[in-house]
Amino acid sequence: MNSMTDTVAATPLRNDAAAKMTAREVSVFYGAKKAVDSVSIDISQDNVTAFIGPSGCGKSTFLRTLNRMNDTIANARVEGQIVLDGEDIYAPAMDVVQLRARVGMVFQKPNPFPKSIYENVAYGPRIHGLADGRAQMDEIVERSLKRAGLWEEVKDRLQDSGTALSGGQQQRLCIARAIAVDPEVILMDEPCSALDPIATARIEELIHELRGRYAIVIVTHNMQQAARVSQRTAFFHLGSLVEYGETSEIFTNPRVERTKDYITGRYG
């Protein structure tokens, strides 16, 4: 196929010693339509990985394969192999409940449950049975809210409804909720697209702070954001992975024409 000539496979980073997740030739179909075409990529443990690309390029769809959220869509089908710490996550032996406890997710629009702030954070630990008794749960909630940078703002009103917070606070609450089950990987699907610039800056700062403790994958259509928060960047176009590499390389010296066109604003 001709388009392959301008696609550089993810080989330069394939033997990353700290790869947390590896995807090999992953394709996703919605019915007969192919939304993601044979993507191979390694997700690093210690870095923030950004997926960029124009709308409809398959970056969010691919992200959702990493914790099998596509399972909830009736006619979605995934081919290929995705491995988390040596375990194939699409193998029959893999329990999706446990997988999602290890690979958490933050969504585009903040989606706190219509419960109290405390109960929002305690939700995950409760369903996974992580806390013995009230004291330990209090500790988990406090620790998660602190890590999400929300503790100082809400510590005196933990029983207020989570939906009463501002958009930026709601998104940090969702991050605290994801952190509470102590995941290994956190997937973020355009986490700032519904937020104002100040709330966005706060989330970006938070992503910096969380780096290293969790492997973080962030989908964004904002290239400046990708440049600011990530160390690795993957450029998706028309369902395939066009180029993947160090963020500094991708933004200053892309090797593929299409990446360069996108980054310089020729399309997208």
Partner: peptide
């Protein structure tokens, strides 16, 4: 009830 609510819960590993 928004789909986002359901997704949020499923993504936490709830059945």
């Amino acid at each position: 009830v928004p789909q986002a609510m359901r997704d949020g819960s499923l993504a936490m590993g709830a059945t």
